[in-house]
Simulated scan of single mutants.
Amino acid sequence: MADTVFRFPAPGSDPITADLDGWKKIEGNPTMKTWIQHTSADGSVISGTWEATPGTYHATYGSYEFVHLIDGQITITPDGGTSVTMTPGCAFTVEPGFAGTWKIEKPVKKHFCIKLK
């Protein structure tokens, strides 16, 4: 039987450093690091840790994401919508079909869980 509880280890020394699919730099020169630390047995969900430096991305989402912000500050603005600022301790979701900006105002570290299928 597969393990049914998984504790994240500390992020490793080999993150993914490419910008996420659907994310385009539009202000500054932000960088990101992604550690996929767990994949569900059926491959439909990934979770891990993500870090980013200040700057702004325009992001388009094809999947559902749950986020718990550990460090930093982000102002998220849906295209044509109202901005919301997230600070450490905030937990939030982003629905598939979201399109808008993520302005990373202070270096960010978050845990994420993304439903792929």
Rank of each mutant, 00 (worst) to 15 (best):
Thr17Met: 11
Trp23Val: 01
Ile76Trp: 02
Gly80Cys: 12
Tyr57Ala: 05
Ser47Gln: 12
Leu69Ser: 00
Lys110Ala: 00
Thr31Lys: 03
Gly62Ala: 13
Glu65Val: 04
Ile36Asn: 09
Ile76Phe: 04
Ser40Thr: 15
Pro78Gly: 10
Gly48Gln: 12
Lys25Met: 06
Ala18Tyr: 10
Thr82His: 15
Tyr61Trp: 05
Leu69Ile: 12
Ser40Met: 15
Gly48Pro: 08
Val108Thr: 06
Thr34Tyr: 03
His38Thr: 12
Asp42Glu: 08
Asp21Ile: 07
Met86Thr: 13
Ser13Ile: 13
Ile26Arg: 03
Thr85Ser: 04
Asp14Gln: 11
Gly97Leu: 09
Lys24Ser: 14
Val84Glu: 15
Ala99Ile: 05
Ala59Lys: 05
Thr49Arg: 08
Ile70Gln: 01
Ser40Arg: 13
Phe98Pro: 11
Pro107Ser: 00
Cys90Tyr: 14
Lys115His: 11
Ala52Gly: 00
Pro96Asp: 03
Met32Thr: 13
Gly62Lys: 12
Asp42Arg: 09
Thr31Gly: 06
Pro107Arg: 01
Gly12Leu: 10
Pro15Ile: 03
Pro30Tyr: 02
Val84Tyr: 11
Phe98Lys: 04
Thr34Arg: 06
Glu27Ala: 12
Leu116Tyr: 15
Ile70Cys: 02
Thr93Phe: 12
Leu69Phe: 10
Lys106Trp: 02
Pro88Asp: 05
Asp71Tyr: 08
Trp23Ser: 03
Ile76Gly: 03
Ser47Asn: 11
Glu105Gln: 00
Lys117Pro: 04
Lys117Thr: 14
Ala59Leu: 06
Thr60Asn: 07
Glu51His: 04
Val94Leu: 14
Ala52His: 02
Gly72Thr: 15
Ile70Ser: 01
Lys24Gly: 08
Pro9Gly: 04
Leu69Trp: 02
Gly97Gln: 08
Gly97Cys: 08
Pro78Asp: 11
Glu105Ser: 00
Ala52Val: 11
Val108Glu: 01
Ile46Pro: 04
Asp14Met: 06
Pro11Ala: 01
Thr87Val: 15
His68Ser: 08
Val84Asn: 10
Phe92Arg: 03
Gln73Ile: 08
Lys24Leu: 09
Gly89Thr: 12
Ile76Glu: 03
Phe66Asp: 00
Thr77Leu: 09
Lys117Phe: 07
Lys24Phe: 12
Pro88Glu: 06
Ala52Ile: 10
Ser40Asp: 15
Thr87Ala: 11
Pro15Leu: 04
Ser44Gln: 15
Lys115Trp: 12
